[in-house]
Amino acid sequence: MNRNQITLDQLPVGRKANVTMLTSDGTTRRRMLDLGVVGGTEIEPLYRSPSGNPVAYLIRGAVIALRSDVSKKIVVSVS
């Protein structure tokens, strides 16, 4: 990973980033691809639950909640 790349679970609420790659495989990878989480997709964390897991993300106009074990497998590029 470059220094401007982090995993999605590290992205602060309100900060936008673009997907660089998925490191997951199997059904989790397929689900992310079906939701539109592909290279170049802009993602913004909107809300964190009180416990910090899951987090609601704005992805392609839809609000989708992801657990931290899934968001750790999505690498994003921040500017």
Rank of each mutant, 00 (worst) to 15 (best):
S79E: 15
P50K: 03
V38G: 01
R15C: 09
A17D: 00
A17F: 00
T20F: 11
S79D: 15
Y47K: 11
Y47W: 09
N4G: 04
K16T: 08
L46S: 03
R15K: 14
E42I: 03
M21L: 07
V70L: 09
M1G: 13
S77N: 11
A62I: 05
I74Q: 03
P12A: 05
R48L: 08
S24Y: 06
Q5T: 05
Q10D: 06
Y57H: 08
P54M: 03
M1I: 10
L46C: 07
A17K: 00
Y57G: 00
T23N: 14
K72M: 04
T41S: 14
T27D: 10
R48E: 07
S71E: 01
R31D: 02
M32G: 08
T27R: 10
V37P: 00
V78K: 00
T20G: 08
G26K: 12
V76S: 03
G52S: 08
I64G: 06
S79P: 15
Y47D: 03
G61S: 12
I6R: 05
R31C: 01
A65L: 10
R48P: 04
Q5K: 08
V63K: 11
L33A: 04
I59Q: 05
G36S: 09
V38R: 12
E42Y: 03
V55D: 02
N4K: 14
S71D: 03
P54K: 04
I64S: 09
G52V: 04
S49N: 13
A56G: 01
G40K: 09
E42C: 13
L46M: 14
I43K: 00
V70S: 03
E44R: 00
L66T: 05
S51H: 03
